[in-house]
Design a protein around this nucleic acid. Structure first.
Lengths: 112, 112
DNA sequence: CAGAAATACCTTGACAGGCGAAGTATCACG
DNA sequence: CGTGATACTTCGCCTGTCAAGGTATTTCTG
């Protein structure tokens, strides 16, 4: 992976919720979508992904159900809740704010 | 603090290096500069700050020396090294890249 | 002068999130 | 039957943050 994970840390949940805003999905698919969107520059590690699912479910942001595929491996689908949507919007707003903050703080001193 | 630290995590070192690009400085002053720059929206916790100094010194990004104040509390000044400058430029570039990435990933699905 | 507050630094221990590694199970292909 | 892709899960380590506590000096205030 080309991007340090500490850069992404704290955005994992938001990234997952963003995917689920689109439609219900399952772990593997979400991860592939992320890889495609970033053209291979980023992927969630499986352990990270499933840890996040559990965290999000515990906080009521998503719910899950087993897919009824009668072929292939079983899939656990996730669905975003209204509460999850609210959290998503809040997190995006926080991102916008912290983006500005970081920008301010790491930019080279313009004066002098 | 209004901004979640996980959002800033991974940028602490860059923020400190950015301050030192300007001029040598010491812990307390750096932290006050950060608070001023962000108008109180963000501050580094002392433990975090001094942990970062040690990390940066160990990796050769900064060097330190005791100030020769003959009044007031002693100050340990930090100076950025050429290696630190290199690291700084690299980290800023990484930030630009990860900023784009995160933006792509957390933005609401535009299609559909 | 005593006490508080500001300046300035340092350490310890706990916690949370990311992730390497390993495991389970199914299906397709040759 | 072995390999690889799909798909999920758990365990334990590592790293960065930070609450809490400590030290020492100076200045301000009554």
């Amino acid at each position: 992976m080309s991007i340090a994970s500490d850069m992404i840390r704290g955005h994992t949940d938001t990234i997952i919720l963003a995917q689920l805003m689109h439609s219900d999905s399952y772990g593997y698919q979400i991860n592939r979508a992320i890889q495609e969107k970033t053209r291979g520059q980023y992927e969630l590690k499986e352990a990270t992904l499933y840890t996040a699912f559990r965290r999000l479910e515990q906080t009521g942001c998503i719910t899950s159900y087993w897919g009824d595929e009668n072929t292939g491996a079983r899939r656990r689908y996730y669905s975003i809740t209204p509460q999850g949507m609210e959290a998503y919007y809040r997190m995006v707003a926080e991102w916008e704010q912290s983006k500005q903050l970081i920008q301010t703080l790491i930019a080279p001193e313009s004066g002098t």
